[in-house]
Nucleic acid binder design. Structure first.
Lengths: 123, 123
DNA sequence: TCCGGCACTTACCTCTGGGTACGTACTTAC
DNA sequence: GTAAGTACGTACCCAGAGGTAAGTGCCGGA
């Protein structure tokens, strides 16, 4: 088992460098192509599927639906269906997802702010 | 153009939600499967290729070499070749890469610490 | 009537990230 | 001789991420 345990055998933390540790799976999900953007978009508040689609340039409905399903299964998103016709589905960060997104936001912001320097360094 | 500019037309920041913005490319590189782990491993100090390979469970030499190349091209890594036989190559974070990795570290640490709760939420 | 909105799903396809295996040339150790 | 270390590169393969297009049924608007 890859997790470190305390004296009583309780898991304390994972090790993302160990390919067998569940934390690796979570890291892979969270850093997948569209997940970062979904989480970042939801940081400002709950959004409907179509709003997310419009916000995230380049994502297809298929990939968006797939990504939302994975993030919901991981426990990072909450999904609320309004009994309207057509039904309106609103996604929001779960408490766990909000914690996670705090860390992702720093990364996304840093890239946005430093992109001119990154581009200069690339050329 | 996806970047916001100031009054004089100078780029100020990117927008990762815009699929045409260069910051999206960088985000994709940085969050690719092995890049996160490479950057996290180098946070503690410079390392040789083989040391990185051993540290990061599951990565092949091919994917490691490929990832290192991309990160170096993006300006996040510095590469130093010692004139030994066989040559020993040491990778380290560039100043830009060190800034970037500060943000990635928070994410990785959070997952490592919270994986027991994430797992509980998944079942 | 058609069109758009809503939130997906399904079918079919492409292609790339990632995988395995082998190769390179030099050195040292057994 | 083989094996291991060094840091890659090359050849071949493929799973699945990702893409496009169409479909679903209800509603309201032109």
């Amino acid at each position: 088992m890859s997790m470190q345990v305390d004296g009583l055998g309780h898991p304390l933390r994972g090790d993302v460098f160990d390919s067998n540790c569940p934390s690796r799976t979570i890291l892979d999900h969270v850093t997948s192509k569209w997940a970062v953007l979904v989480l970042a978009a939801l940081r400002t508040g709950p959004r409907r599927f179509s709003a997310l689609r419009r916000t995230i340039g380049g994502v297809s409905e298929k990939m968006l639906a797939q990504t939302l399903r994975t993030l919901e299964a991981d426990g990072f998103l909450d999904r609320e269906v309004a009994p309207t016709t057509p039904p309106q589905v609103t996604y929001s960060l779960s408490p766990l997802g909000a914690e996670l997104t705090e860390h992702l936001t720093g990364l996304v912001e840093w890239i946005a702010v430093r992109i001119p320097d990154i581009e200069a360094a690339r050329s």
